[in-house]
Nucleic acid binder design. Sequence first.
DNA 1: CACCTGAATTAGTTTAACCTAAATAATTTA
DNA 2: TAAATTATTTAGGTTAAACTAATTCAGGTG
Lengths: 151, 151
Amino acid sequence: MEITKREEEYLETMYILQKNKGVIRVKDISKKLNVRPPSVVDALKKLNEKGLINYEKYDRIILTEKGLEIAKETYQKHVLLMKFFTEILGIPPEIAEEDACQFEHYVHEITAERMKEFAQYIQEHCPYVLKQFLKEHMEKEEAETQKSPPK
Amino acid sequence: MEITKREEEYLETMYILQKNKGVIRVKDISKKLNVRPPSVVDALKKLNEKGLINYEKYDRIILTEKGLEIAKETYQKHVLLMKFFTEILGIPPEIAEEDACQFEHYVHEITAERMKEFAQYIQEHCPYVLKQFLKEHMEKEEAETQKSPPK
DNA sequence: CACCTGAATTAGTTTAACCTAAATAATTTA
DNA sequence: TAAATTATTTAGGTTAAACTAATTCAGGTG
């Protein structure tokens, strides 16, 4: 049975909620994913069908072995992409977050892995060049921020 | 009126077909996007509604000003991402292609731009380190290729 | 313990994107 | 040019993912 990108996103969200709050509630998923509670319930039913979570109505939600595995993989990619975008490219966190949040569902294993290796390699072999690159762009951003009309 | 990721993909495909073949045919879009011709016709109707192409049945398809603009922007991101994945990370073209094909529709302008700048910066300031990084991974891939069962 | 409130759920729709099968138009070829 | 082939289109479905409105449940408080 196929798992969609969106389902992956639901799983990842639940995994993070579990980690941070200890429980997974419909309301919180709803808030995080910016969808209405009934949409969450729909998703939960499907994920349950597919054996990725254990869900019975009004009962607590638990990721299964398989669901947890997918959630973790996705989350790892997310973290890795975030690091790359912010630490190597110097992208502002909010933007990096959005980019990572999409790309994590599409990026091939090899590409993700390579990004991680590349980051390490550069940080080790030419940290100064990297620092310089980031510095130049930080300055540029500062300037942009100044320019923007002060509300 | 909103434009979807998929519509962006259609526009980009048509743009490339126009460039390479001179004409845009349903059959060719169908082949490139791996969908059946009726799906293409559906898409064409919507794009026409939205003023992104000029389309009347059995007539030739033309990108409008607006449609062309979107197509070009998307295509540029595609090219840029491809370059980054292959030339900086050393990802094999077929895989890079698939990654680029998805990410191009989500990546923020600033991230795309920064990837381009980063590539230039590294190629200029530490070409040897880059070459070394790529070399190491090429070798690894060679080895993998050997390992895989020779059909 | 009954009531109230907020959380979760059901029922019924909508939209984007696809599909198959059948019909029609355009193009090529005998 | 008529017939055959190929391309395009229509008609009618399907599925994923969302929505609103209305209902049901659960936990906390008087």
